[in-house]
Design a binder for these strands. Sequence first.
DNA 1: CCCTTTGTCGTCCCCATGACGATAAAGGGT
DNA 2: ACCCTTTATCGTCATGGGGACGACAAAGGG
Lengths: 234, 234
Amino acid sequence: MTEYPPFAVTVDLVVLTVRAEQLCVLLVRRGIEPYLDRWALPGGFVGIDEDLADAATRELAEETGLAEPAGHLEQLGTYGRPDRDPRGRVVTVAWLALLPDQANPVAGTDAASADWFPLARLVPGQLAFDHERILADGLERARAKLEYTPLAAAFCPPEFTVAQLRAVYETVWGTSLDPRNFHRKVTGTPGFLDPVGRSTEGERGRPAQLFRRGPAAILHPPMLRPDPPRPSEG
Amino acid sequence: MTEYPPFAVTVDLVVLTVRAEQLCVLLVRRGIEPYLDRWALPGGFVGIDEDLADAATRELAEETGLAEPAGHLEQLGTYGRPDRDPRGRVVTVAWLALLPDQANPVAGTDAASADWFPLARLVPGQLAFDHERILADGLERARAKLEYTPLAAAFCPPEFTVAQLRAVYETVWGTSLDPRNFHRKVTGTPGFLDPVGRSTEGERGRPAQLFRRGPAAILHPPMLRPDPPRPSEG
DNA sequence: CCCTTTGTCGTCCCCATGACGATAAAGGGT
DNA sequence: ACCCTTTATCGTCATGGGGACGACAAAGGG
């Protein structure tokens, strides 16, 4: 290790949540150059003695003000085009986080401000660096993972109804699903849902049974998205 | 970018191929410390002006002596535990390559030697650094991808038979598949296989039709592995 | 010429799922 | 009290993919 090219390494987070029937991503407004005042994914430099996953967790906590919430965090991919940061050679490890809608006040740290953005409202070219591509990759990963994992529950509070879970699928996929078939599918897949034993109260309509995330790590067989053309992939 | 912790960035390759009914990985014997004389995944440092994907492609070409073969190369994940390399802080971007059995002579570059290892013959603790975990992750990725992509063809020569393709699945998954159902599935999935129009000659048994990879990028519906318990996943 | 080997087509059955009707269980209004 | 709306949940039916397996085709070898 006498000689090697020095890199800067950062983590960037694609933090998704579902609120008000909309799939939203957490963005921060940059307070420094480059891309001053532009929106960007939250992130930051990795400490020289810090594990990558720890750095991601730390940034997530800093930006959302939450200490390891009940959501989900996984590595998304690494982006390192030589020209992606005008300041020099920066390689970023991107992470995907799925969080329940915890009315996160979003603590302002070094970022000027941070807020949830409905994805439908984003316009091309709005994000700093290559964050638009990272976001697109994160979105596709999230959509794909709902098919073969029980991760949709990561968008829900600890206890939730089948209808809430269905709303997550519908929002993330942008489709509508038959309530009866969906109910049959999720309650019939072993390990997907654990019945709490209680029901909702005070809501409109018939009370709904409450569930928690089950122990299953994957869905088998998967819950496939409806017809619309499927994305290509490398 | 005035101040940031300096990292070294490497790429490491999980190069898989199927030869002699065995799933094999390309390993190199290390010629320098640390882990001198231990087997490791092929890889090396990323140039300061080099794209990550280019570095992976370059290493693949160096280690196999092949310039971008008909196989497949994709990013697998990034590993950066602070203590993973005793020489200092090294973050490695791992890549997964699937190659046909091109009787690669494996050019010896800086590595002392390189060779294909049947996975069944690897013993725990045999690999340098955290390469055992990287390899395990690559294996699971490859196995999973055969389910919902036509990537099995990446293990085959440009023109191949259904039986060759089936052998790939059986070898990678370690299962046996019904030849008739497999034939129906792969020939019935639009875009999976393109018929060449010719057949094999001089083989045992009835000549088999030759195919090329079709244009499909994903398999829908997927080809699911037989029953055996499915691996958990984060 | 038979036998073995391998490829390919066809049949049967079951289960998962899409489409959709019917019923249960709450609240709100008159 | 009653009806109406809303939502949850259970059933029914048809379709289609896939597992199990039989049958035939097309080569080579003794």
